[in-house]
Write a protein that binds this DNA or RNA. Sequence first.
DNA 1: ACGGCCTCCTGACGGC
DNA 2: TGCCGTCAGGAGGCCG
Length: 275
Amino acid sequence: MPELPEVETTRKGVSPYCLKQRVKQLIVRQPSLRWPIPGDLSAQICGQQINKVERRGKYLLFHFDHGTLIMHLGMSGSLRVLLANSGGEAVNKHDHVDIIMESGNILRYHDPRRFGAILWTDQPVEEHKLIAHLGPEPLSDPFNADYLTQRCTKRKTAIKSLIMDSKVVVGVGNIYANEALFLSGIHPQQAAGSLKPEQLAKLTHNIRKVLQHSIEQGGTTLKDFVGGDGKPGYFAQQLNVYGRAGSECLHCKTELKEIRQSNRSSVFCPQCQPL
DNA sequence: ACGGCCTCCTGACGGC
DNA sequence: TGCCGTCAGGAGGCCG
């Protein structure tokens, strides 16, 4: 499940093979992603040059002179580079899209569950419906203790739901939400508006910390995005709570509990994260 | 404005 | 061995 660190690692991994490259051909084997891949995408990008690859939240943005290809990896998506001299690799199940560069290198999009998306806009991408209402990047200055405190004011919603709301802050998926709350000693069901500023400062810090740490780890697996079997970088995480329900808390040995919030699993330590 | 729930999809896994 | 039900999960969309 690509979380923000995996998307950022993907961006870094594919960028060198995209920058200043013209698209030679687009092959769409399966257009039915979360939304249909636009039928005119090929006409839009073939012969055009990619100027930059950016990331906004978990969206990858491929900037052309006249528009932007917006890509999301959803739950199960991955993007890797097949090198021109690799002799042509077999197309596997769920390899839905190839973007072939003039260099002969190929960007191959793979997404078994098809929760991802590949879209096109010729408008400023920051005005696009999917991008315009996104909150700040979690690793940017605007995401700070004051900001989070302000966004929590008078909010009755559970803090975990709030930090996973992309209108509040982008890129905090279920795994990192659980981990950041554990590190902050905050119960996932605590009402956002009832948290003290000190707690929210701690939470802000820990959200940044877990994401930054993962991005740094991702840097070591960049090679996995090019050539080889192309396993995308799902970094071996040292997770404190996620996936450990029923096991002992690594701090106090209390049994970790699991609850459902908005149909998502939350794992926490009842001792370290009291309500 | 807010909060909760549904939905898309496939692979993995448990039960029988 | 195989079939079937259930679950996971990002995030937009919808409803109350």
